[in-house]
Amino acid sequence: MKIAVLVKHVPDTYGERRLDPATGWADRTAGDQVIDEISERAVEVALAHKDQDRSTEVVVVTMGPPQATDALRKALAMGADRAVHVLDDALAGADLMVTATVLATALRPERFDLVIAGNESTDGRGGMLPALLAEMLGLPLLSALRTVGLTEREVSGTRITDAASTQVRAQLPAVISITEQLPDARFAGLRGIMAAKRKPQAKLTLAALGLEEPRPRTVVTSTTAVPGRTGGPRIEDDGSAARQLADFLADRHLI
């Protein structure tokens, strides 16, 4: 079985994150960049199956700037077999449609049995990429899975919504997206880190994929910084603090 896992290099959620006011894009220089946690969990799903079937090939795929290689190295150190990096300056600031088009073009010749992605990245949080990929590849989609079962012919899992818990399944090949309710990723030890240096990492440009410079379907028209927080009213207890607090809450219809 051949499994593709989509990974993304994102600003660290524990650090500062901001938009570049000139472009409206995420500022990739604002803080540390790391592999997205949901991407790590997606890699773990693939590797857990590889643990059961050693003939399984796990390929990690990303589209991003040169530093996105770090995310691929982390996935290779965890145990993935090889990596594919779509890298082209013309893709800077790509929207969801452009990203899906390019990734679908990169994935199609490989004829993967399963494509795994996170349900949404922690930077863009569009949540639409798995569905767009499934549509472009002409494959069934099982989205937002909290459990995943995989056999030679079928993928299945549990999807939780506000209304119900649903058991879903599809014949392979297919696309799935997983949630943070899947297990944490395994630790990449020293042996894995050293082995990752010898694993293949293919770099693909738009020209190599046979694509012209894509035209975005969405445009950022303006950006506005979030205003800083201001202090609330301060109540000094001069004997009337209880009344002042009650009036404050009543004015805001909280009592």
Rank of each mutant, 00 (worst) to 15 (best):
R17H: 09
R17M: 13
D36I: 04
P173I: 10
T205Y: 02
A202M: 12
D89N: 14
P66C: 06
P66G: 04
A48D: 07
T179N: 04
K74A: 12
L211E: 06
R191S: 14
A48I: 04
D95V: 15
T151W: 09
N119G: 04
V148D: 03
A90Q: 09
F248M: 11
D32Y: 06
D27W: 13
L87G: 08
T151I: 07
D89A: 14
L91D: 04
I116P: 00
G126E: 14
A170M: 07
P66A: 11
D88A: 11
G93T: 00
R17F: 09
M63V: 10
V34T: 02
D88F: 09
T221G: 11
L47H: 00
T29Y: 12
S39I: 06
T218Y: 13
D12G: 00
E40P: 08
E44M: 03
L150V: 02
S121A: 12
K203P: 03
M97C: 11
G232P: 00
T205F: 05
G79F: 02
K197V: 08
I35Y: 00
L139E: 01
P233D: 10
A4D: 01
A68C: 03
L145K: 00
E40R: 15
G138W: 05
R243W: 12
R229V: 08
D88K: 11
R186G: 04
A71T: 02
D238T: 09
A164G: 08
E180V: 08
T147D: 03
V5Q: 02
Q167D: 12
A117M: 13
K8I: 01
K203W: 09
A207P: 03
A48N: 07
A26H: 14
I176D: 02
T122S: 14
S143M: 07
L6W: 08
R186L: 06
I178F: 02
E16R: 13
L133S: 02
L114K: 01
A22S: 08
P11S: 00
V219Q: 15
T218S: 13
G239L: 04
Q33R: 15
V102F: 05
M97P: 07
R215F: 12
A144R: 15
E135M: 15
V84Q: 02
M97G: 11
A77D: 03
L182Q: 09
A246M: 10
R41P: 03
R191C: 08
A104L: 05
P233L: 10
A26K: 13
I160W: 07
T161R: 10
R54Q: 14
L133R: 01
M78F: 10
H49G: 08
V61S: 01
E135Q: 15
L72F: 07
Q181H: 12
D113V: 05
G149F: 09
L245S: 05
V60K: 00
G24R: 06
D95H: 13
T223Q: 05
